[in-house]
């Protein structure tokens, strides 16, 4: 009859510990978890097909059968907002992967090699920085055509300098470290030194950037869609939906644009909080400061 209180499981204690140390990270992760579930469960969550046009039910205000109302095509805004989460992830995740795949090896090589390749890369990045990235993205997507693949590739490549810089800085710090010298002394070929010895120790900073860069990717893709060169309507992409909604804002049908806008803000906020938290946890100096 002894009433012992069961100790909370280890994983729960761990989550509690992380939450205490970085509430930002925990809140960001919770928001993203919500969006991820929304994206995965979209087929079951959406009350209507997000691209089903109901011509007789155009611009219905929120309430009743359509909690978020309907848009100019009579499509259910709630269903479109839910489906939009999948599109946001579908662009952000591959874009960040493209950025990593292009940027990390570049930073790794130039950081280790130094000399003129490094010089050329850094000057190239400086030149790129002169243009606002949205202008570049706009120009490239406008020229290459507004397909999902093009949007992903453009955002990814525009992201790659960030990853290259972070990795390069780490590599330069590691290049002179004793364990790298020890790897050379053991007879490691250069590729092994780069990928086996340096990369696993240099990637942390880049990984900490991924969430923030994903937030940027979501924003840019929405901006492209808003400007009409990204993903095209009636695809349920939040940026495209906001563009549609903007037209109705002046005529009083606020719900068409506001709901996808709120979803976009919340997701970008969640990613940024997660990113900040990750940098706090992964950067030892900031980690010490937050303890």
């Amino acid at each position: 009859m002894s009433a012992t209180v069961a100790a909370p499981p280890r994983w729960a204690l761990r989550i509690a510990g992380i939450t205490r140390r970085s509430p930002t990270l925990a809140i960001g992760a919770a928001i993203l978890l919500g969006f991820a579930l929304m994206a995965i469960l979209a087929p079951w969550l959406t009350p209507y097909d997000p691209v089903l046009a109901q011509p007789r039910n155009v611009l219905a205000p929120p309430g009743g059968a359509h909690p978020f109302g309907t848009d100019g095509n009579g499509m259910d805004v709630l269903s479109r907002v839910i489906a939009g989460a999948g599109w946001a992830f579908g662009i952000a995740i591959p874009a960040v992967l493209v950025g990593l795949l292009a940027g990390v090896p570049l930073g790794l090589y130039t950081g280790y090699r130094g000399g003129w390749p490094d010089e050329i890369m850094m000057r190239g990045f400086d030149a790129l920085r002169v243009f606002p990235s949205i202008i570049l993205a706009l120009a490239v997507v406008a020229a290459a055509g507004p397909s999902l693949l093009n949007v992903v590739l453009v955002i990814g490549f525009l992201d790659s300098p960030v990853f290259a810089r972070v990795v390069r800085a780490e590599v330069i710090a590691l290049r002179g470290s004793t364990f790298v010298e020890s790897a050379v002394a053991a007879g490691n070929p250069t590729w092994r030194i780069l990928f086996v010895h340096i990369l696993p120790n240099a990637i942390q900073g880049a990984m900490a950037q991924t969430a923030v860069r994903a937030a940027w990717a979501v924003r840019i893709s929405a901006t492209l869609a808003f400007l009409g060169v990204g993903i095209q309507p009636p695809t349920p992409e939040w940026g495209a939906m906001i563009r549609q909604g903007a037209e109705y804002l002046v005529t009083g049908q606020w719900w068409v644009g506001i709901f996808p806008g709120l979803a976009l803000i919340l997701m970008v906020l969640g990613l940024n909080m997660l990113g900040d938290g990750m940098q706090d946890m992964l950067d030892p100096r900031r980690k010490a400061a937050t303890r």
Binding site: R10, L13, R14, A16, G17, I18, R20, R21
Partner: peptide, 12 residues
């Protein structure tokens, strides 16, 4: 007597 008193990641 000097002690280091800290909380672990799992809050112990």
């Amino acid at each position: 007597h000097t002690h280091f008193i800290s909380r672990d990641l799992d809050n112990q």
